[in-house]
């Protein structure tokens, strides 16, 4: 087994709130600069740029497809996929359900699909910052049905964090793992939310600008950088491990 440094929460220029500099090319450069072995591109309710990032990276780093899905309750959930088609199929389902509110770029920012050569190939019209009109349980079910892994993003943060929005963990077995915000000290979140003890904790960068890529990360002890291995690690099987990196100081 081997330790992999992973940042599984990176926004690209497809997220209206992310910098126009976050092209697939730039994301790959920054991920290499930050010494990341594994990344996931998680735009709001969309995933198209992840495909280009994966092609450019050629496994340096390994790239998973992903999304940051906003549920009806306005809880944000990271969805990680190895299978590009499955992720894109889910993204299409979600896009069709999004309210037909156009993204006005001057207010919200641009929502562009950018290819390996930094060319804009598509513009998404519907505002991706709207929640999809599906309850949390249904979003998790759809991600898992397609073979993905659903992990609540920055659980402690307002807006969008599961515990901030819903106050308590939902009933049932989900989630086994949670992400914390880049600047949240692990001890602090555990003492504020004792119900998280025993949960597997990830840290992502939630990067919206190039310099932020890799500012928060998670170390994974796996026999290969695959989603199946990560699922095994979350279940604590055969010595696999998930270890969140240190928090970033405010201002970075």
């Amino acid at each position: 087994m081997k330790w992999y440094r992973a940042d599984l929460h990176i926004h690209s220029v497809l997220s209206p709130c992310a910098s126009l500099e976050m092209s697939p090319k730039r994301i790959v450069e920054e991920a290499r600069r930050a010494g990341l072995d594994l990344i996931a591109v998680c735009d709001h309710n969309a995933c198209a740029n992840g495909c280009y990032v994966r092609r450019l990276a050629r496994e340096r780093p390994v790239v998973w497809l992903g999304m940051e899905i906003q549920t009806q309750e306005e809880v944000e959930v990271l969805a990680w996929f190895e299978d590009e088609e499955a992720c894109c199929a889910l993204a299409e389902e979600l896009y069709a359900l999004l309210p037909d509110i156009p993204c006005q770029p001057e207010l919200f920012g641009d929502q562009v699909v950018v290819n390996e050569e930094d060319e804009i190939v598509r513009v998404l019209d519907r505002l991706l910052l709207s929640p999809v009109p599906l309850p949390l349980e249904e979003v998790v079910r759809r991600v898992e049905d397609k073979g993905g892994l659903a992990v609540p993003a920055h659980v402690d943060r307002v807006p969008g964090g599961l515990l901030a929005v819903l106050g308590l963990l939902p009933e049932g077995g989900w989630p086994q793992a949670v992400e914390v915000a880049p600047w949240t000290p692990i001890q602090k979140v555990l003492s504020r939310y004792p119900e998280l003890s025993g949960k597997v904790i990830f840290r992502g960068s939630d990067a919206h600008v190039p310099e932020e890529v890799g500012r928060g990360w998670t170390e994974l002890l796996l026999s290969a950088p695959t989603l199946a291995e990560l699922k095994a690690a979350i279940e604590g099987r055969d010595g696999r491990q998930v270890r969140p990196g240190p928090e970033v100081k405010e201002g970075l």
Binding site: Q72, E73, P135, V158, L163, V165, L166, G167, L168
Partner: peptide
């Protein structure tokens, strides 16, 4: 609509006005 806010600041006997419909509203 933030259940953490309700947990932190609502008081016994309050009428709670909300858009939130998740199961957790009952527990809170």
């Amino acid at each position: 609509d933030l259940l953490s806010d309700v947990l932190g600041h609502a008081r016994e006997g309050d009428i709670w006005i909300t858009h939130q419909r998740h199961l957790n509203v009952v527990a809170v």
